[in-house]
């Protein structure tokens, strides 16, 4: 990844950014998020199939540097999050320096090598392998074998279910939730300063890990992602209980596409779906 390191060093040497959020490899060989503050630290940057994290989450979490932009290494799915944050007025395009990576897929299981079997499902339907919004574009596109979309299969199965069967499916899934809120914390679009689950006057969501508390948390989080989820699947990747959270957000994204021809985070100049109203909006699906 010399190209990345060279660009990063150049960025620091010419004061184009104050920090660069990227990936590094630790001494155990794990690829993980890393923040470079100077050109020496830029040497540690890397990018590979194991660069799974959506680093855009840090854009709203980190304190804004006083002396320059935030540089960020971003794959296509991360770019969609950056675009979405710009669309939602959370960050300004001028405050970030985007080092985009042509992406050749990322792994599902971080402990194993990249292969067709070990590729995230999101890569199958990715439309931004070459990002569409950047200051630098690095890396070469290579062909790779797309994974099976096993999620689509499950979605079809769920759709064929009766409401009661679906309820039971989700009850057993949400029953596992331990409320660690990792799904929320890794989500680049969960940037509320105070999450609704933290509000106690009134207590909208019960904090207990019980059927009621778990349903209200997971469903309300899903609803808050309606037409907003950019499909990075980070919530599902980090869920310690393997709850298939993206089934809900992906489905809602599909509805947004079908009903409004809208996909969030694709174009920073497009008004957001949730933030705009048109009298010609399709209402047929509201029952």
């Amino acid at each position: 990844m010399n190209q990345l390191i060279e660009s990063a060093k150049d960025i620091f040497q010419n004061n184009k950014a104050a920090i660069i959020i990227g990936y590094t490899k630790d001494k155990s060989g794990r690829t993980k998020p890393f923040i470079a503050h100077n050109s020496d630290e830029a040497e540690k940057l890397t990018f590979n199939h194991h660069a799974v994290n959506n680093l855009a989450v840090y854009l709203t979490r980190l304190e804004k540097p006083k002396d320059g932009k935030i540089g960020i290494v971003a794959k296509g799915c991360d770019i969609r999050a950056i675009n979405a944050l710009i669309q939602e007025n959370q960050i300004r395009r001028d405050d970030v320096l985007i080092i985009a990576m042509n992406c050749n897929g990322v792994v599902e299981n971080q402990n194993e090598e990249f292969s067709k079997e070990n590729t995230q499902i999101k890569c199958k339907y990715c439309q931004l392998r070459t990002p569409n919004n950047y200051d630098f574009l690095l890396g070469e596109l290579e062909d790779f074998e797309l994974p099976e979309d096993s999620q689509q299969e499950l979605m079809n199965k769920l759709e064929a279910m009766t409401p009661e069967e679906r309820w039971n499916f989700w009850e057993s899934q949400f029953g596992n939730c331990i409320k660690c809120y990792a799904c929320r914390q890794v989500c680049p679009l969960c940037y509320c300063e105070q999450c609704i689950v933290e509000k106690s006057m009134p207590q909208w969501i019960e904090t207990s890990s019980t059927t009621r508390g778990n349903f209200s948390w997971n469903l309300i989080r899903a609803f808050h992602q309606a037409g907003r989820c950019i499909g990075c699947h980070e919530c599902e990747r980090v869920c310690p209980m393997d709850i298939p959270l993206t089934l809900l957000t992906r489905k809602m994204g599909m509805i947004a596409m079908k009903e409004f021809n809208y996909k969030h985070g694709m174009n920073i100049n497009e008004p957001t779906l949730i933030g705009t109203y048109s009298t010609s909006d399709n209402e047929d699906f509201i029952k």
Partner: peptide, 13 residues
């Protein structure tokens, strides 16, 4: 601290 996202996965597992 700047990398930690502040979930409680570590504590809950």
């Amino acid at each position: 601290g700047e990398l930690c996202l502040g979930c409680a996965q570590c504590a809950y597992v």
